[in-house]
């Protein structure tokens, strides 16, 4: 696996320079999108702009002086389910963190639901209806399950009892365990609590960073089912996943990121059946 991905990394650098048949795909799409925006012509990409929720353009970002993302373009439409896949170190999680104001913003634009959120801090961004579930340490271990969910609604002046009920209905185990310390939950339960915490604000877009990481194989499917449920109830989902095949199978649209830049973008099924994507990123 590691030897393969090294080879992939090299080939992607080469392809960027050589710009052969498939390598120029993202560039072409970006160009198409821009012209589509200006002319409001009905091409493939305008579907996302029509009821666009999140629009990331030309985003450069990183940590301190270290730039990780280079000219990232990313769209999520209202209610859409979008997945970001790619090799380790491609900057997948960094995209999400950058959208949520957790990295150093270096240029480009991030619009969410009509608001410019580029360079804003998370405390402001969360007010616009964007929820984020980090990959690690995503619950307050020393607080009870219920207190974790209460913290999820911290920014509201009045506690939303009906939201709490909805989260409990979605994840009944959390209702059962509401008095228990979050640190004593199993991995799967923690992940549900982390999602429940983010859902307390009924976000328009829920960003999930590797929700299946560290889960037992039989729980992974269940986790994906729950994410499907969340999406079907109207919440747009942007997800980073290592489990790329399953994620692409379930999502509406997918992005393949390599070395901090866009490489491919298409419907999940199309990417899943694309020969080059399969060979390079999905292990054949």
């Amino acid at each position: 696996m590691s030897a393969d991905s090294d080879a992939d990394g090299e080939s992607s650098v080469e392809s960027g320079a050589a710009a052969e048949t498939l390598g120029d795909d993202p560039d072409q799409q970006a160009a198409e999108r821009e012209t589509a925006e200006r002319a409001s012509a009905s091409t493939e990409t305008t579907r996302h702009d029509a009821d666009g929720l999140l629009a990331v353009r030309d985003l450069d970002a990183g940590y301190g002086d270290l730039q990780v993302l280079d000219a990232i373009d990313l769209d999520v439409a209202d209610g859409e389910y979008v997945v970001i896949v790619g090799p380790n170190g491609a900057g997948k999680s960094t995209v999400m963190k950058s959208v949520f104001g957790l990295t150093t913003f270096m240029g480009g634009s991030i619009d969410f639901d009509g608001n410019d959120i580029a360079g804003k801090n998370p405390e402001d961004i969360i007010h616009h209806g964007l929820g984020y579930v980090p990959q690690n340490e995503n619950v307050f271990a020393g607080l009870s399950v219920r207190e974790n969910l209460e913290m999820g609604a911290y920014i509201l002046d009045e506690f939303p009892d009906e939201r709490l009920d909805e989260v409990f209905d979605r994840f009944p185990i959390l209702r059962e365990r509401q008095g228990q310390k979050a640190g004593t939950l199993s991995g799967g339960q923690r992940q549900m609590l982390a999602m429940g915490r983010a859902l307390m604000l009924d976000p328009k877009l829920l960003m999930l960073d590797e929700p299946s990481a560290g889960l037992a194989p039989d729980l992974v499917d269940e986790m994906f089912d729950r994410i499907d449920d969340i999406n079907e109830s109207g919440t747009a989902v942007l997800m980073v996943e290592q489990n790329a095949k399953e994620a692409l199978r379930r999502c509406d649209r997918g992005y393949v990121l390599v070395n901090g830049g866009n490489r491919f973008e298409d419907d999940g099924d199309v990417l899943l059946n694309d020969e080059e994507v399969r060979q390079e990123f999905l292990g054949g």
Binding site: P122, P134, E137, F140
Partner: peptide, 12 residues
């Protein structure tokens, strides 16, 4: 006290 990064993400 528990997790400062998560507190920021939660809007605290």
């Amino acid at each position: 006290a528990d997790n400062e990064d998560l507190a920021r993400v939660t809007g605290i």
